[in-house]
């Protein structure tokens, strides 16, 4: 095994960043010099190699100092850790909430069927399902995922308030509409005190929402936007593409008008379809040429 292979195998578990390749090259030249100097002192090839490697020392502490990351760490940081983000307490709470919502629905329907009063269902469902949903909303928003950072719990509480008001508003609306026999006008009026503020708060919160994406998501998004903004590589190609498309559609619409006058609408629309087909072909030709160039 030569020095290069030895170094490669030492660092095979680490993500190969530019910094690491630099360092491996530095290491290689120094190790080779050290081996040469040991051989000059009369050591055999293999002995010199082994001694130089022994002198190198522990590579893992060095990797920490160079803040190198193991490949699997990088991978798991990006994709694999979703499950790990959910703590056991949260898992338990999710399950309890699911059970609570299910319980609310079942008992609500049962109460409704037994009493044949809609109120019975609404009341039961509101208490159990409503509280379940609110806790799930809170947990969901404050949950860190592989793609998003967690929301602050204060902000999440505002969302809970908004959703709570919405749910209660819907409940009051349905209640007023069906059970009291008050009819639609009263029911609609009942939307004002709860549903409307809840919705306003929700809209305000969504509009003022900050981007909570993790760095790697933001990076992906930046790249996607960049490639979407320059689909055909150079500005010159984009301009040519625009001109061809312009000419194409002028011809297509002119053909459509002409054919409508001469042979009627029955066949003239085909001109537009033909233009669309050619447009797609032109686009694919530009894309393919672009791909070939890279």
């Amino acid at each position: 095994m030569n020095t290069r292979q030895q170094i490669d195998s030492l660092f095979s578990g680490y993500e190969k960043t530019a910094g690491l390749s630099d360092f491996m090259e530095e290491l290689e030249s120094n190790l080779n010099d050290r081996i040469a100097s040991l051989k000059q002192k009369g050591m055999g090839e293999q002995e010199a190699f082994d001694k130089a490697l022994a002198e190198l020392g522990d590579i893992s502490s060095l990797a920490d100092d160079l803040s190198l990351k193991r490949k699997q760490d990088v991978f798991s940081e990006m994709y694999m850790k979703t499950r790990n983000y959910i703590s056991p307490v949260r898992m338990a709470l999710y399950v309890i909430c699911g059970a609570l919502i299910g319980f609310g629905l079942i008992t609500g329907v049962a109460a409704w069927l037994f009493s044949s009063v809609l109120d019975a269902f609404l009341g039961t469902a509101l208490i159990f399902c409503g509280s379940g949903v609110l806790v799930v909303v809170f947990l969901g928003l404050t949950q860190e995922t592989s793609a998003n950072e967690a929301m602050s719990w204060k902000r999440a509480l505002w969302y809970v308030l908004s959703v709570g008001a919405l749910i209660f508003g819907v409940f009051v609306f349905v209640n007023a509409y069906f059970t009291k026999g008050a009819g639609l006008p009263v029911a609609i009026a009942s939307l004002i005190p709860f549903f409307l503020p809840g919705m306003s708060l929700g809209v305000f919160l969504i509009l003022t929402e900050k981007d909570r994406s993790k760095p790697w998501v933001a990076e992906l998004r930046r790249e996607a936007v960049k490639s979407a903004m320059h689909p055909f590589g150079s500005p010159g190609r984009e301009e040519r593409f625009g001109l061809i498309c312009g000419a194409l559609w002028i011809a297509g619409i002119a053909g459509f008008v002409l054919l409508t006058i001469t042979v009627g609408f029955k066949f003239s629309w085909l001109a537009l379809v033909a233009a669309l087909v050619v447009q797609l072909l032109v686009q694919s030709a530009f894309m393919k040429a672009d791909g070939k160039r890279d």
Partner: peptide, 22 residues
């Protein structure tokens, strides 16, 4: 460069210092 610095230390300590390159 790295090897020179390492070698200098070895020479000056009469190879008594068991310094790891890392």
């Amino acid at each position: 460069y790295g090897f020179e610095i390492y070698n200098r230390i070895l020479e000056r300590t009469g190879e008594r210092y068991e310094l790891k390159e890392t």
